[in-house]
Design a protein around this nucleic acid. Structure first.
Length: 155
DNA sequence: GCCAACGTTGGC
DNA sequence: GCCAACGTTGGC
C-alpha cells in the first residue's frame, strides 16, 4: 500500500465537500502538473491512503485521511472548453492528457495537523511538504511519516 | 536545447 | 494581497 498527500484549496474543494459527497467519494480532477499526474497515473493504487491537506487558508494543514477507490483515468474536464480546467493541447489532440482518481473520505483527524506543527517535528524534516519552495500538489509520504502524522492527528 | 519571459503556487 | 520559488512556454 502506498501513502500520499494531496493539496486542496478549500475554496475549490474541501474536506467537508468530500464528506458530504455521495458515498463520501469524489473525483480528484483539475490537476495540471506533470509530476503530480505521473504519480496518479503510474503509482496510485486501489486502497492507497491519502492525506487531505488544505492550502491557502489561514492555518494550512492535514485535516483527514482518504482512500483511493478508483485508479487513474482520463480527466475529461481538460476537454471541456467551459471548464476552468480546460486544456488547449488536450482539445487539439482530441484526448485528455491529464489524469484524475477517485477518493473516498475515511477519517477526519480529531486534531488537524497544521503545517506549522509538521515543520516543528524533527522526525519529519525530510518530508517533502516541509521543504522550502515545495509546491507539488501530489506527494508520496513514507510509511514512517504516515504513522507519525496519524498519531499527531489523534488517530 | 537554451533560457528569458511569463504564469502559478501557496505561505505569510 | 504580496512575492519568492518554481514550472511552462516559445523564440531563437
Amino acid at each position: 500500500m502506498n501513502y500520499w498527500l494531496v493539496k486542496t484549496e478549500p475554496d475549490m474543494f474541501s474536506w467537508t465537500d468530500l464528506m458530504e459527497a455521495k458515498n463520501q467519494t469524489a473525483s480528484w480532477d483539475g490537476v495540471r502538473n506533470y509530476q503530480a499526474r505521473n504519480f496518479m497515473r503510474d503509482q496510485f493504487r486501489l486502497g492507497d491512503r491519502v492525506f487531505f491537506y488544505h492550502s491557502r487558508v489561514e492555518t494550512p494543514g492535514i485535516v483527514g485521511i482518504a482512500e483511493v477507490v478508483k485508479e487513474g483515468y482520463p480527466d475529461h474536464t481538460a476537454l471541456d472548453p467551459k471548464s476552468k480546467y480546460s486544456d488547449e493541447k488536450s482539445i487539439r489532440d482530441g484526448a485528455s492528457r491529464w489524469v484524475m482518481v477517485d477518493l473516498k473520505a475515511m477519517k477526519a483527524f480529531p486534531n488537524p495537523v497544521t503545517l506549522n506543527e509538521l515543520k516543528n517535528v524533527v522526525a519529519l524534516k525530510d518530508m517533502l511538504l516541509v521543504q522550502p519552495g515545495q509546491r507539488l500538489s501530489v506527494q508520496p509520504v513514507s510509511e514512517h511519516h504516515w504513522h507519525l502524522i496519524c498519531e499527531m492527528g489523534g488517530l
